[in-house]
């Protein structure tokens, strides 16, 4: 019988974290920030069918970076969780905090117990009744949950994007200004992102029950011109 080599837990965690980080940084990053009517999410995404940003529930949106199939499974699980909870209790009982904790559980379980950790980072955004109640939960590849205010960035190079967002973020900005700030923050060095490579969606306080709306590519072009 062969004995497995002893690997110190510190080393194992580090290896797994490096593996997950490497997978995530291969994909493009994503930014979310508050604007005058709610929360806008901007992702660099050349595909118009494989979405990074999606609707979970009336006031909750999901955004993921990293391996598409992995975060898409999490998205579907989130929609199911929210719809089941809303069906069993009331639509008002579905909140982002509960969902973020569930995601954290699944992701941290995979990080420590499964063959390979999930190569994803996700963002769960909830639109409050006023801007002060808006919530942004950033969930890392190891299950760490970070409750962020005003804006958030996930994916490779998120630190740099976050600091650029910090400079450009203006409270109560109009949609066009917020999208511009996000795009400028996502652009690194001389690299410019063309508007047909952008995926933009909002959670908008407009009185509709379902607050999630996609901004179609044509409108993105108008906004950025």
């Amino acid at each position: 019988m062969s004995m497995p080599f002893y690997v110190p837990p510190e080393q194992m965690m580090k290896d797994r974290a490096d593996f997950a980080r490497k997978g995530i940084s291969r994909g493009r990053a994503l930014a979310a920030l508050q604007y005058v009517d709610g929360i806008v999410m901007v992702a660099e995404n050349p595909s118009t069918t494989l979405r990074k940003i999606s609707e979970i529930y009336d006031r909750i949106a999901f955004a993921g970076v990293g391996k598409y199939n992995e975060f898409d499974q999490l998205r579907v699980a989130g929609v199911r969780f929210a719809d089941l909870k809303g069906y069993q209790f009331s639509r008002a009982d579905v909140d982002a905090r509960g969902l973020a904790n569930q995601y954290a559980q699944v992701i941290s379980q995979a990080f420590t117990h499964e063959v390979k950790p999930l190569e994803v980072e996700i963002l769960v955004a909830e639109l409050g009744w006023s801007a002060a109640d808006d919530q942004l939960f950033h969930i890392m590849y190891d299950g760490t949950v970070i409750d962020e205010r005003r804006f958030s960035a996930i994916g490779g190079d998120a630190e740099a994007i976050r600091s650029r967002l910090d400079e450009r973020y203006r409270p109560g900005a109009a949609l066009a200004d917020a999208v511009k700030a996000a795009v400028e923050s996502l652009e690194t060095g001389d690299r410019r992102i063309s508007h047909d490579e952008l995926e933009v969606a909002v959670l908008q306080r407009d009185g509709d029950r379902r607050c999630f709306h996609r901004i179609d590519p044509g409108s993105i072009g108008q906004i950025l011109s």
């Binding site: 199911r80 069906y87 995601y103």
Partner: peptide, 26 residues
């Protein structure tokens, strides 16, 4: 209530009625 995940062979897809049955709320 927890986040339910299904294997590739028994995923209820977009069928909400089937999801309810799996969750014991048929």
């Amino acid at each position: 209530m927890s986040l339910v995940r299904f294997g590739p062979g028994d995923d209820p897809g977009p069928n909400f009625g089937e999801l309810l049955r799996r969750a014991g709320m048929g």
